[in-house]
Design a protein around this nucleic acid. Structure first.
Lengths: 322, 322
DNA sequence: ATTCATTATAGATAATTATCTATAGATACG
DNA sequence: CGTATCTATAGATAATTATCTATAATGAAT
């Protein structure tokens, strides 16, 4: 039997004929003419090399070989129906996988979105990569992930971005610091103190540095630490002051106060970045849609800044074009 | 996804590409050119409506959808391979079904063949129909069975026959009968006795009647019984004499003797009859082949008369022609 | 940056398929 | 024994498929 030229259509027709027990009836059901169906059957029988049907008391009944072919056809057609369902689920973003890469600081907020999303789409595998900005930039260049979260995106030449969350940088001091009770503080007053800072190249540090430069200020004594957590704890224990993303602070922070420094908070935003030269998985798109729709429920409203509709719009356009 | 124009060939090609991890390599394995394979893939991806492969570090790896399609393809192709095996078994006569219709008297001998055959081909379903000659003729007319066993076949206009077993008709008497010890008996001597006979129309009776007519003899008193068994027992218990197929007698028959009547035994033969206007099932053909090859082992050599090779020859010719 | 291998595209062609209409041959029903 | 209903065959045609050669575009590896 040479299955080279066997089409699924042929099996569909055959199954219909066996199901109907009649060529004419099958033709009606399939909206074909009877000779068409007859001829298909003939070809199928030739392909199989064995008679498939014989008329028994008025009805067409499958022969031994025909019965087995019918079984096989049903299984095969069923399997491809399942495949069709799978595809639909994939397209609907209900199933599949995607990966998302975060710079360190974003790990304080992204779980608020990913948690509810995973609840809603349990069939989607999400891989989260976390690292410092340099690390993430490498991944971005290599197109290793579906989605990236940056506060300061790299070049958008091959990518589109959509902001979704405010990321205010605030100055923090220990609660018992002399400046703690003040109505208003000038930045210059802080710079005499030792500042605890993230490494150069981290988004937080970059933003702070460039702001200082604008203001014509220069740093005094500093202490560099690679982790936001370590900085927060350091400040609480009196090692110095710091400028940190507000998200890094726990909602209750008895040891720390936010200083009302003029010009702060520094406004920046978390945004999703999507490369345009890599096909975005349906699942990732589904996640963005979910974020667009449910952001309000997942984050405190003072941080809310949902500009994802625009991002989605630009993606759909690209999608339709392809 | 429209599977209307999906060919098995296409799935084979796709599976080969995924297996090889490269279009060119797959093309080599399939003895096709690389553009051919590329183009098939393109068409397949269009049919599915989703990219199937993406190049990951030099190799082609299936996408999510592609991986599922690969699974489906393997299953489907596997299922049809199995179907191919099934067909082969069917063609080889190792599997399937057939029915065989016997006139009553043949039931004494056919099990000797059917038993060993079923042992050798346990996957074949055999249906045996047994009845009197009239009954079998009806079945034969209606083409209800694959094989028929007659000693006197009906018209062979639409059928072919092959003898396989001698069927001698002998005269039997109770052991204590006056004629029992005699060296030689004339038929006319028997006709004074009461004869136990099968019904007119039965092969045994027809043969006996026409022989008597040839000899110019006529029957004396008779008693008609529809069963060979009943006749045999009747003779043993002194109800009269009879002319019976030797196969009807048990191998040891202490109550009966075979009379050495001049002109007896009447020679007739069991033969297989196959209609030519009905497709012979592979299994039935397999049975005939088995019979042809193993007849010697299944029946006593004095009855042996294997002319099945001729029958098979005629069937193969018809088969090749169709 | 050059080169080698891989993949994609274009253009061509023969074969095959999917369908139809019209018609002939079979079968079953009253 | 017609008649209605089925199935099979023939002939036609447009669409699709399978396959090639030649060539361009990509991409990985010196």
């Amino acid at each position: 039997m040479n299955s080279r030229h066997l089409t699924f259509r042929l099996l569909q027709v055959y199954a219909a004929v066996v199901g109907a027990g009649s060529v004419s009836e099958a033709a009606r059901r399939l909206h074909l003419t009877q000779p068409t169906v007859s001829q298909q059957l003939k070809r199928l029988a030739e392909t199989v090399g064995e008679p498939l049907l014989e008329s028994r008391q008025g009805r067409l009944a499958p022969t031994e070989a025909g019965a087995e072919l019918y079984r096989a056809s049903r299984e095969v057609l069923g399997r491809f129906d399942d495949f069709g369902d799978y595809l639909e689920a994939l397209r609907g973003g209900e199933r599949g996988r995607f990966s998302i890469a975060l710079v360190n600081t974003a790990q304080y907020v992204l779980p608020r979105l990913l948690g509810p999303y995973s609840q809603a789409f349990p069939e989607v595998d999400v891989t989260v990569h976390i690292g410092n900005r340099r690390h993430m930039l490498t991944r971005f260049e290599r197109q290793e992930d579906d989605l990236y979260v940056f506060s300061h995106p790299p070049s958008l030449a091959h990518a589109v971005a959509g902001r979704f969350l405010r990321n205010p940088l605030v100055a923090v001091a220990p609660r018992d610091h002399p400046l703690a009770g003040r109505e208003r503080v000038a930045m210059s007053e802080l710079l005499g103190e030792r500042m605890l800072l993230r490494e150069p190249g981290s988004a937080t540090r970059m933003l702070f540095d460039s702001w200082l430069q604008e203001q014509g200020l220069t740093l005094g004594p500093t202490l560099q630490m690679a982790s936001n957590e370590a900085i927060r704890v350091g400040v609480a224990s009196g090692m110095g002051l710091a400028v940190l993303s507000e998200h890094v602070l726990p909602s209750e922070h008895p040891d720390l106060v936010i200083l009302p420094v003029a010009g702060l908070p520094l406004e920046s935003h978390w945004q999703f970045i999507v490369r345009r030269d890599r096909r975005l998985s349906h699942a990732a798109l589904g996640f963005l849609r979910f974020a667009e729709g449910h952001l309000g429920e997942c984050v405190e409203s003072r941080f809310l800044c949902n500009e994802l509709a625009g991002l989605l719009g630009r993606l759909e356009v690209a999608d339709a074009a392809s």
